[in-house]
């Protein structure tokens, strides 16, 4: 049996991972113990109730999608984004159920359907209206990216939703769906952690969740102190990275490469 631990950059990554989990855990415990955590307001999250209220006033439905997500939950880059999008779908569906607004969720991810259906069903249940949930109107699946885009575009102009919410692992469909929403004058909230689609969502949506904001949004929505504690831990990690950048930058200016050597091991 070989040596388990090899001192290389991967080992530094492992240390960072362990330190992150320790920080998240510690701050979650501190928050549970009464530490006040204040999270910056995300305009995109604050706009969700407004988007549903708009739909209720206009008597129009809401379009919701978590994007292509590489067609499966089992994708390390997109799976977590789809999950984050589904978290916010639960909150949005609950608001819709409360105000009697119809919501339709479009997805090409077949293996997410049990999770989506349960999340939406629970949202209706939480509002005491389980009988109003109908999967044949609330969930719309299309196999593959282009058919999902075609069906989304068609539905958007036929049903003219008052609001369109695009949160998840998007690919080229993002700009098309968001522009289709703009054409009919829908209020649009977008968000993704796929850098290649961010410019389009920022350009076309009224509000955008950028990168980690997508993951943090559900924590903010939950309002649970312990969940918010993990965001504080995340910020401390950011300070750690900022410190590494600052110190490394100054050392580089004087020709010292010891920090780089430490990170590379």
């Amino acid at each position: 049996m070989g040596v388990w631990i090899v001192l290389d950059t991967k080992f530094v990554a492992l240390l960072l991972l362990i330190a992150s989990f320790a920080l998240f855990y510690a701050y979650m415990k501190l928050a549970q113990g009464g530490m006040k955590i204040k999270v910056r307001t995300f305009p995109a999250v604050a706009a969700i109730p407004e988007a549903i209220g708009r739909a209720a006033e206009m008597g129009k439905p809401v379009y919701y999608s978590t994007g292509l997500g590489q067609l499966t939950l089992n994708n390390q880059l997109n799976g977590p984004q789809t999950l984050a999008g589904i978290s916010i779908l639960g909150y949005t569906t609950r608001l819709c159920a409360k105000s009697g607004v119809k919501i339709t969720y479009f997805t090409p991810i077949a293996d997410s359907l049990p999770l989506v259906e349960e999340t939406m069903r629970n949202a209706y249940l939480a509002e005491g209206k389980p009988e109003e949930f109908d999967p044949t109107t609330a969930i719309n699946f299309q196999n593959e990216q282009s058919p999902y885009l075609t069906a989304s575009l068609g539905w958007i102009q036929r049903e003219k939703p008052a609001s369109s919410i695009l949160l998840g692992g998007f690919y080229y469909e993002s700009v098309c769906i968001a522009e289709a929403g703009n054409i009919i004058g829908a209020m649009q909230i977008g968000g993704t952690a796929n850098t290649h689609q961010l410019p389009f969502l920022v350009a076309t949506c009224d509000y955008t969740l950028i990168m980690e904001e997508l993951y943090a949004a559900s924590a903010e929505i939950s309002g649970n102190p312990d969940v918010l504690g993990s965001l504080k831990g995340e910020d401390l990690l950011k300070f750690l990275v900022l410190a590494l950048l600052g110190i490394g930058f100054l050392l580089a200016l004087i020709g010292n490469t010891s920090l780089i050597g430490l990170l590379r091991l």
Binding site: V12, Q76, G79, P80, A252, G255
Partner: peptide
């Protein structure tokens, strides 16, 4: 599977490599 792989494989290319590239003069 996706969370495990995502969590494990992210810190190296997305954090450490980015820091190293930035502070390399």
């Amino acid at each position: 599977s996706s969370l495990g792989l995502g969590i494990a494989s992210n810190p190296l290319p997305s954090i450490i490599t980015q820091v190293i590239s930035t502070i390399t003069a």
